[in-house]
Each structure stands twice: as structure tokens, then as C-alpha cells.
Design a protein around this nucleic acid. Structure first.
Lengths: 229, 229
DNA sequence: TGTCAGGATATTGGATCCAATCTATCACCG
DNA sequence: CGGTGATAGATTGGATCCAATATCCTGACA
């Protein structure tokens, strides 16, 4: 039960009552994959998961299919599913998608941002300053970005953006040697927030694109270095 | 069997041998939903689908879960799934996402486009001129766009872009009163292609964004009019 | 007559069982 | 000694069966 230890802990501290077992399994598994509790390449054995979750194999199968559709698991017929791998090419894809989506989200959201939104974003920057834990760091960063996009009034666009923010986090979690990225990232956050406060949409969009691009470049460099070595 | 007539036809002319029944059902159902063979809001009864496909309910359930993850079906616990509805808000979301993704895809692809690619795009424009069938029209339009993006070297970005092109097509299929959109759209196609031939990335990206925006605006107007009346 | 309670029915959700297929091991042969 | 083929085990894919839940209809009562 060693490889499932982290997952078991996630399962056991499950508070909310899900309406179906499949939903429970899917949500928990997705969380586990995105937060790195289950490493890329790990086989997802149906019976093993069924035992861990205390259900039969069927809801597990439904959950795995959903994860496949979200590109978080890879299916090989009659051989089972594994947690989706992380490649340098995928990292570049995620970066490009973020660079496309997030400026659009910000441009739509910016005119509708309230003072409270901007204050909350500033709060999140401050919290990040004192944060050491990578996992929590990723969450704060994600919330900062999503706070700025929240007023876009385009739920599907936001969901897609958040999904790729989470995917980027997942990549970062397996890196995060590059802690040196932090200070510069925080400077970029502050500059971005300032542009938002001034309502300067063009500058803000440019800044967020550059900011995301920075992260993507670092990530791509790290991943291709890892693949080479 | 009246409401399944179109689906039955799709099922019966299935040539390729799928590796699993679930894959077969998912692919065929997705095609049917995206091409409008099954209308939005249609209930997806598991047993009925199982009969239509000649399989048991289980692969159908797995397929439905995948469609749910792709936002093509909506699940209501213990009440079943229905084909995802089409709302004006969703149309606006799709449009915004396309406006974000496609200029990015074009910018990455443009420097690597070959003369053959550009010729094929021109060929597709010509084919569209003489096309009356809406379904085929949508396919040609999609291929034109994807041809221009194909050299981006970002498979996940391209898959996401194509997915939303398909979604937009799905919306258009339920409209397409607006056949008047055609000539202007073709002019935009030609202008876009010209910019690509000249290698003018900035102009090309601006044109594709405007072009997609045009389509999105028309769609949104149509949908909100339909919702109002 | 309208509303609410209760039961019948249909449909989904979950468990178990069987079949298909892949993997690994081992014997056998060149 | 290395490679190939067969066989056993493990694991998934698919079908059937049972339980849980929602819907709908009916009927009693205010």
C-alpha cells in the first residue's frame, strides 16, 4: 500500500458527500493527479483503486474515462490506464494555451473589476511573499490570477483557463528546483496589478502574456533538460 | 425509433474497427452530437443507446462520462444524461476562446507554412464558393482554418482549437438562417490567406481574430434573439 | 377543486460474474 | 547460449443482476 499512501489520506479526509461514487472517485483522483500526490506514469489499477475508495471497479472505470477525456490519464486497451506523463512538448503547449487564454480573460474582466477584487489580489501577493510551501504557493498564485479574470463573465473561458493553470501547477510541482523564479514572478505580479488598478487594459494584457510566457519558458527549459539528461 | 434514425444510420455505416466498444460508442456519439444528428436537449437513455449500438449499457455509460467531461453531455444523478444545450452565453464563450486560441495558433504556425499548405488553403476557399450543403460547408471551413494552423507544432493547442471550431460549427448548424454571412466570410478568408502568403504575422493574426469575432457576434446575436423569442 | 401523500414504474447507479487479451515466465529448439 | 513459442496468471472489457432514486400517476382529504 506504499504507493497509495498519499491517495489513501486524501480519500480518508473526504468530507463532502458526493451524489454518486463515480463523482467521488473522479474528483478525488483528479485532485490527486493535479497536486502531484500520484506521480506521472503511475499505473491506475482498477481493483486497487476500487479497494482504496471502498467501491467496486465500475465507478472507478467511469472516473478513469473522465480523466482520459481531460488528458489526465492515458488509456491503453486491455493494458490499463496510467497517470498522464509530463513532456517538454506538453509543457510548451500548456504555456502557449495560457498565453492565449489569459490575456483574453483579463481583457474581458478588467473593466468590471471592483476595488474589492483588486484588494484581494494585493492580499494574495502579500501572502505569497511569506509562503514557503510549494503546494500552497501554487494555489495562491492560481487564486491571484483567477481573481483578476473572475469578472470576465465567460464561465467556460474561465474554466478552461483555470484548468490550464492547474496543469501548469502540476508541471511546476515536479520542478520547483527553480525557486529562484519567485522574486521576479512577484515583481511581475505587482506590475500587473498596478496596470489593472489604472485600468490600462493593453499594458495589463501585455504584462500577463509576458508573465505567463516567462513561466512557460522556464518550464520548457527545465523539462527538456530533464528529458536530455 | 424515430428520434434515433439519424444515429442508427451513423452506426450502421461504421467502417473502422474500434479496439473497444466504449471507444466506438464515444466516437460515434460525439460525431452525432457535434454534427447535429442528435439535437441539444435530447435525453441520452442508456438502454436505448445500448440497443442502437448493439452493446450492453456499460460501454455506453463510459462513453457518456467522456462526453460529460467534454461538456457535450450533461449528467443529472439518477435522472440520466441529455445532449448539452446551446445557450447564447455558451456561444459567447466559444467565440471568446476561439479569438484567443486561433491567433496564437496562426502566429506559431505561419513561419513554418509551406507553399503546399497555402495552395491547399486556397483550394479549400474555392471549394467553399461552390458549396451549398451546410454540413460540408462547416467541414471545409474547419479544414481551411486548421490548414493554416497545422504547422504550429503544438498538438494540444491545435486539438483545443479544433474542438472549439467544432463546437462553433455545432452552433452554426442550428442557426444557418444567416447564409448571408457567407460572402463576407469568404472575403475575410481571402484577405487572411493573402496576409499569410506575405508572411505578415501581425496582420494575419489581427484578421483571424476579427474574422472569428465576426462569426461569434453573429452567433451570439442569433442565439440571444432565439432565447428572447 | 386543488393539493399533498403514497405507491407503482421506469431508469440510473453499483456489484458481481464471465470473456477477451495482454504480460511474463519457462521450456524447447536452433 | 540466445531466441522463439506456448502456457499460466493477471488485468481489463463487457454483460447481467440487484439496489437506490426519481418521476408519475392515483386517490384521499381539506
Amino acid at each position: 500500500m506504499a504507493p497509495n499512501d498519499g491517495l489513501s489520506r486524501l480519500v480518508s479526509r473526504t468530507q463532502p458527500r458526493y451524489r454518486t461514487a463515480a463523482e467521488f472517485v473522479e474528483t478525488t483522483l483528479r485532485e490527486a493527479i493535479l497536486t502531484g500526490v500520484i506521480a506521472p506514469g503511475t499505473p491506475l489499477r482498477q481493483e486497487e483503486l476500487a479497494d482504496t475508495f471502498g467501491v467496486s471497479r465500475m465507478p472507478v472505470r467511469e472516473a478513469l474515462r473522465q480523466l482520459e477525456a481531460r488528458a489526465l490519464a492515458e488509456f491503453h486497451p486491455h493494458r490499463g490506464a496510467v497517470v498522464a506523463e509530463i513532456s517538454a512538448a506538453d509543457g510548451a503547449d500548456i504555456g502557449a494555451i495560457r498565453m492565449a487564454l489569459e490575456p483574453m480573460a483579463l481583457r474581458l474582466s478588467l473593466p468590471a473589476l471592483t476595488a474589492a477584487d483588486l484588494d484581494q489580489a494585493e492580499e494574495l501577493i502579500a501572502e505569497m511573499d511569506g509562503e514557503a510551501d510549494p503546494g500552497r504557493m501554487g494555489e495562491l498564485n492560481r487564486r491571484f490570477h483567477m481573481t483578476l479574470y473572475a469578472r470576465a463573465g465567460r464561465p467556460r473561458l474561465l474554466a478552461l483557463a483555470e484548468q490550464h493553470l492547474l496543469a501548469a501547477d502540476r508541471y511546476l510541482r515536479f520542478q520547483f528546483a527553480a525557486l529562484g523564479y519567485l522574486p521576479r514572478s512577484q515583481d511581475e505580479h505587482r506590475a500587473l496589478l498596478a496596470a489593472c488598478r489604472e485600468g490600462d487594459a493593453d499594458t495589463a494584457c501585455r504584462l500577463v502574456a509576458e508573465h505567463v510566457g516567462q513561466a512557460a519558458e522556464q518550464l520548457a527549459a527545465f523539462l527538456s533538460a530533464r528529458e536530455a539528461g
